[in-house]
Design a protein around this nucleic acid. Sequence first.
DNA 1: GGCCACCGATGACATTTGTCAGGGGCACCG
DNA 2: CGGTGCCCCTGACAAATGTCATCGGTGGCC
Lengths: 203, 203
Amino acid sequence: MNPVRVLLADDEHLIRGALAALLALEDDLLVVAEAASGPEALAMARAHRPDVAVLDLQMPGADGVSVATSLRAELPGCKTMIVTSHGRPGHLKRALAAGVRAFAPKTVSAQRLAELIRTVHAGGRYVDPELAADAISAGDSPLTAREAEVLELAADGAPVAEIAERASLTQGTVRNYLSSAATKLGAENRHTAVRLARERGWV
Amino acid sequence: MNPVRVLLADDEHLIRGALAALLALEDDLLVVAEAASGPEALAMARAHRPDVAVLDLQMPGADGVSVATSLRAELPGCKTMIVTSHGRPGHLKRALAAGVRAFAPKTVSAQRLAELIRTVHAGGRYVDPELAADAISAGDSPLTAREAEVLELAADGAPVAEIAERASLTQGTVRNYLSSAATKLGAENRHTAVRLARERGWV
DNA sequence: GGCCACCGATGACATTTGTCAGGGGCACCG
DNA sequence: CGGTGCCCCTGACAAATGTCATCGGTGGCC
């Protein structure tokens, strides 16, 4: 039986290296490539055509989900899984929509990770039960596309005028969207709304 | 020569375990304890009295710097070092003030980390050059104590009235402090001011 | 003692924001 | 075809926020 060819993508060398070392102990797993950024992960995947890609959620360049999306299109045979420190409900949803086969927090053990890689390679799927519960209880985003867009532009505390300009909208329209978004989220102002939407992974 | 006794504290099992495995390969290093939270790190340190404590910056309960402060008081012989994913200038300053001997990002290699542990154990110090440059260019916080306090209370987007109540101040006073803080930081409003202060590690 | 920085407050003002009530246009669906 | 939901806008009002001038008190420092 050929070993499972694995691509590791994580921007923290320390963790990536440690992970590679641990997975190397499993004789049915073979780490064929490592990457420290989204674009690098894609390039490595093209070059080495791994069976399974283990992606960190937050990476410079392109995050794990967008890498997974690209991979799905380019290398349908390559299964993807996401490992992350900060698992937010929305991320899980986006990841599953992108065809990711497994989604786990970094609090799992290396042993467990190795098992997950095997599971995914065999065609199985997995999501962390706790994250799944969060995602279900958080539900779908009640925000419309524009509400979410405007909220995102408001994320760094920009004044309404700037948001309006960047979104090519009227200030009044922007305020209406922000107001309705805040109402839907149960927030008193747009800033707490931004925070809540972030926590739920809706932005 | 006795091996260096190391305490590992990081809330991500995956990383902690991987790190422990890697450090175990170095025969002059011995991981005697692991912890997943600030309080647990303290308890472990008391129980096992390590030579060097490797602390993650962000942990549940108490962050790496406060753990380092407590350790310095309780176990003066135990040297502390901080390893983190997100190194902000202010964190570095606070860490050094707390008597931390080394401050490195998680982008270092395991080999490098092992060297750092030896360096620290031998009485040396180390700070990541890039972080040091950031810290120097960021300079000291221009904020007065109250400005920083009020800014912190404003961090989650609370309205002025709530900040005033929580700080036992008048709304006018709060607005004045927020205004001066925003001016000092070159921000247009308090929300971007909060963000800037966070980025520089001044809150 | 005088100087200066910080703390805390007041009052007034301009600006920004939040909120509400609309209206026209468009697309989808029963 | 009518209803519904979203998009985009307007206008107006209330509330929150930012800004400025100013004042008194405190404590450190030369």
